[in-house]
Amino acid sequence: MKKALCIVGLLAAFGSFKTAAEHHLLAAQRGAGFQLATLSGQTRTQLGQTGFVAALSGFRALMADLLWIRAGSAFDRTEWPRMQMLLHAATQLQPRAVVFWEMAHFHMAYDASHSMRLNVRQQPVAALRRVAELEYVQIGEDFLKAGLVFNPESATLWQRLGELYSRRRDDPARAAAAFTEAAKKPGALRFLRRMAAYELAKVPDKEREAYAQLRALYLEGEQERLPNLVRLLRQLEEKLAVPEASRVYSQPPALGPSGTHAPR
């Protein structure tokens, strides 16, 4: 009995020290992108009791995969609300898997929302179909934004956000901002800066800014002088009435073999 008390005492003394250390370590790990999964009530419901225990004790990534596969079967049956819940649970379990956020947003903002638009049989009123469509675009946007909270350095997610603003929302100002952000991230592809400038050119009172960006890109060298960029640059020079002397070129661009490779 005395021995047991002695041990409990020692454990408590060690415990108060190690609790502080654990707290510190957890913060450090979260800072580096670990231990970010949240096992909320909703995730727990999706996983069931056994799955929840498994997720807690080493099979978290696998449980996320299983949820993902179940989301796939919901996709096959076009059960969008169920799919949304499963995607949410999977991303919560494995929030550092960029591909999960990316695919989740595709399925919501594109697949589900398109299917809402075409859903004439269940919703004959066009305006209401439009509302439903936009709701899913919003859900897709929410997935991207949540994904960016966990992966702020992901160029892919910023790029997808820009694409969503551009294609699904007709919001070139925010699209430009998202592409600009994407272009700053490690591993970003070159064309993102071009995309930012293209989008900015569509914003009514930002043309001057857009022109400055396009011009800077043009001056960087041959590899940026793609037909679209050159065409837009010329349009802007006309529109903004840039003096002849300070225009970047006066001849029509030659269409070289490099001109064939255009941004997606």
């Binding site: 580096a32 992108g33 670990f34 970010l36 990534a61 494995q94 550092r96 898997a97 960029v98 591909v99």
Partner: peptide
């Protein structure tokens, strides 16, 4: 699990 999805 995080390392497996690319976290350093």
């Amino acid at each position: 699990d995080e390392i497996a999805v690319g976290t350093a």
